[in-house]
Nucleic acid binder design. Structure first.
Lengths: 270, 270
DNA sequence: GAAGTTATGGAATATATATTCCATTTGTAA
DNA sequence: TTACAAATGGAATATATATTCCATAACTTC
């Protein structure tokens, strides 16, 4: 059997596996069959583990990897690890390179940002915990008034939620802090708050959320880290991670989450 | 700090991470913050990789694992590898599972909005004309001041551009119309304007853009139709189409375009 | 049945990775 | 300012894992 180049993606791998499976000696067949049904384990297992589960010796497994075109198991595993963790190429470095050259080609820059936007969206369904999302919706549905706070980069999300709730006649107050107005007296028993803050966490947002929580207001947090300061006040936490692009992060995933919240709450309040 | 038993599940790990994050020396703080945002990488990375990404030495990372109660990294990783094995194998299968959940379930709704966000991003590189984008960047680079207007659903984009330009020390004025202030006298010869408006086109935005154009201010329009009213004033037009999801459209594609503009302009002005 | 080829198991070897140890630096208290 | 404690970086060491090699078994062809 002639040796082909190594597959470079999970999909390539699948096609190759199908192709080589046509005719195989006994042990290699076991490897093929096992892998066909257990791709989920490739990224997180050792050769020894996979071989054992396939019922073959590790060396047979290695031979199968080579038959597929890889130099060894590590090369195969690398493809799956990248797919699983959505481990991105270093975007900051690529952006720097694009900046340097693409002063003359903003369309290439646009394509890059489209890619990072997609990547951020891709991760959203795994960072957002279904139970936490349901809790958040339940809190917001039950509240007579919804308070919104999100400043600096998070402001567009807070604003958009206010806009969306407004269109659905859901009582929602954007704590926009115009003129440094003190809006805390508008917090009434039974109300809920959505607080949105991303590292390095705007102090005013944290203070407003902490104050609300201290008054028994239920807080739903949209934030980017498990140990975010918003976690400390007992907020129902929805995790969003936008792909880091050096100086900036866009908000593509945050918007998908915001509109989900608005829609789910709006549907239940009408 | 007393040593607690090792967490035995991902959820235990999360609680422990939050608990130990209260007070940490510098390098251990880096580890905590990195892990708080990157749990997806634990199962498929080495100590060396994680330490590097966290910006610490491997030994600091090991110390952090021990602070969390584990004997070392391997014990921590084991929890995540076991958790992973019990989950969906890959992104598209995960998405199918989400879709199979009852309609109206917020998590399923989230998956749908992720899909529409992706679709909106997908179309962006074809709706945005490369020459028009280049023209827009050229206009903005040359302007002593950039004026921004976008109201209602477009406001988050206008705001975000103001935020981004502000961070890069590019003079940009958000026409936010607070208190119905009249800001038109701030338009100076040679300035440029970015006007953002989507159907049904907010009248105030159109008027502000038309006024600017009538004074010889070059206008860059972000809009959703070739025959948008903003086209009529001779604006350099960048087309974005957000996929329609009933009552609402998110802004995922608009954000990718906004950050592209900000970045390209910022690179050329520094 | 014999010869040649292919497949296989497992030990030996190479490499990657986790962990420990220790000298130095930094921070804190008196 | 000094002494002590805590934090840190990085080299050395230990362990786990991937890979190669080779003797033997199994299969195929004549």
């Amino acid at each position: 059997m002639t040796q082909d180049a190594a597959p470079t993606s999970v999909e390539d791998f699948r096609q190759r596996l199908i192709a080589v499976s046509e005719t195989l000696p006994k042990r290699l067949r076991q490897c093929a069959d096992y892998l066909a049904m257990n791709t989920d384990k490739i990224a997180v297992s050792t050769v020894a583990e996979l071989a054992q589960e396939a019922g073959v010796q590790p060396s047979a497994f290695m031979r199968f990897c080579q038959l597929l075109g890889f130099s060894g198991f590590s090369e195969l595993q690398k493809i799956f690890r990248q797919d699983y963790s959505q481990r991105w190429p270093n975007y900051s470095t690529r952006l720097d390179a694009l900046r340097a050259e693409a002063a003359g080609n903003p369309h290439a820059l646009l394509a890059e940002f489209v890619e990072t936007g997609r990547a951020s969206l891709d991760s959203l369904t795994s960072t957002v915990d279904a139970a936490a999302l349901q809790t958040a919706v339940d809190i917001l549905v039950a509240a007579p008034r919804i308070h919104l706070i999100g400043l600096k980069r998070a402001f567009p999300i807070a604003y958009y939620l206010a806009y969306a709730f407004g269109k659905m006649s859901v009582p929602a107050l954007l704590h926009d802090r115009i003129g440094d107005l003190d809006q805390q007296h508008l917090l009434h028993p039974g109300d809920a708050m959505i607080a949105i803050s991303y590292a390095p966490y705007t102090q005013n947002t944290l203070e407003a959320a902490a104050l609300a929580a201290s008054r028994g207001i239920k807080v739903v947090a949209i934030t980017d880290a498990l140990n975010s300061p918003l976690q400390r006040i007992g907020a129902a936490t929805l995790l969003v991670r936008e792909v880091d692009m050096g100086d900036f992060r866009a908000l593509s995933a945050s918007f998908a989450l915001a509109i989900t919240l608005a829609t789910a709450v709006g549907a239940r309040r009408t």
